[in-house]
Computed example of a mutant assay.
Amino acid sequence: MRKACVLAVFAATALVAACGVQPTGVVEAGPGPSIRPTTGSAVAVGGVTLYFVSEGRVIPVTRPSDGFISPEGALMLLLKGPSEQEAAQGLTTFVPTEVGGIGVSSGDPGYISLPFSPRKMSGQAVNQLVCTAIAAYSAMGRTSSAPGMNIISPDGETYFQACKSG
């Protein structure tokens, strides 16, 4: 009998505690993420990883491709900006389109040579270039112990930029 009373009191308490909570409808939060991992077995053969900006952060986006994409090719795709679908998902680029003429070389660390001073670009833009080049070299099986690349301007100014994404 005592157990029955305790259970009844517990059930009544649970019902009273739930009072005042109003049900809500579905709250729209926008489209689900479509960003795919850029490392491990999830990287599809024939895919290229580009780094775009979303909500102020540099993030990886894997695009399908018909075959091997060189680091230079990956950077040229990056310079074209996000696709219509990627832009609709809020992705953008801070890399100016006039950056053309980029040179890339692997090494430990590798380097990216720009046709002007990297100081004319935002940190996010430089980071997009570095992360995209590193991802392309990784896809080729070329890895460096350095977490980034040297950025070189025409006047020889050089500085190191690590890939900071996510």
Rank of each mutant, 00 (worst) to 15 (best):
Ala74Arg: 00
Val126Ala: 01
Ser83Leu: 15
Ala146Asn: 11
Ser113Ile: 00
Ser153Asp: 10
Thr39Ala: 11
Met76Lys: 05
Pro60His: 08
Phe52Met: 08
Cys163Gly: 13
Lys120Glu: 13
Leu91Asn: 11
Ser113Thr: 05
Thr158Gln: 12
Leu77Thr: 04
Thr62Cys: 09
Arg57Ile: 02
Gly81Lys: 12
Leu78Val: 14
Ala133Ser: 10
Ser117Ile: 04
Met121Thr: 08
Ser153Ile: 01
Val43Thr: 10
Ser105Lys: 02
Ala29Arg: 15
Val95Thr: 05
Glu157Phe: 14
Ala136Leu: 08
Ala139Cys: 05
Arg36Lys: 15
Glu28Ile: 02
Gly141Phe: 01
Lys80Ser: 13
Gly46Thr: 07
Val16His: 06
Ala88Pro: 08
Ser144Asp: 13
Val9Thr: 09
Thr13Met: 11
Val61Ala: 07
Pro60Thr: 02
Arg2Thr: 08
Ile69Lys: 03
Val95Met: 11
Lys120Trp: 05
Ser117Gly: 10
Ala44Gly: 15
Gly25Leu: 03
Lys3Ile: 08
Gly90Lys: 02
Val58Thr: 11
Ala12Cys: 11
Lys120His: 12
Thr49Asn: 10
Ser117Glu: 06
Thr132Asn: 04
Ser113Arg: 00
Ser41Met: 06
Cys19Met: 13
Val43Met: 10
Ser117Pro: 03
Gly40Trp: 07
Val99Ala: 13
Val26Met: 09
Ser106Val: 01
Ser144Trp: 02
Gly101Arg: 02
Pro147Ile: 05
Cys5Lys: 13
Gly156Ser: 04
Ala74Phe: 03
Val104His: 00
Ser34Met: 11
Glu28Cys: 05
Gly148Val: 08
Gly141Lys: 04
Glu86Ile: 10
Pro115Tyr: 01
Leu129Glu: 07
Cys163Val: 11
Ser106Cys: 06
Thr39His: 09
Leu75Gly: 07
Glu98Cys: 09
Ala18Ile: 01
Asp108Ala: 14
Ser65Leu: 01
Glu98Ile: 09
Pro82Asp: 09
Gly81Ile: 11
Gly103Met: 01
Arg57Val: 12
Ala44Arg: 14
Ala139Tyr: 02
Ile134Glu: 06
Ser54Phe: 11
Thr13Arg: 12
Leu129Met: 11
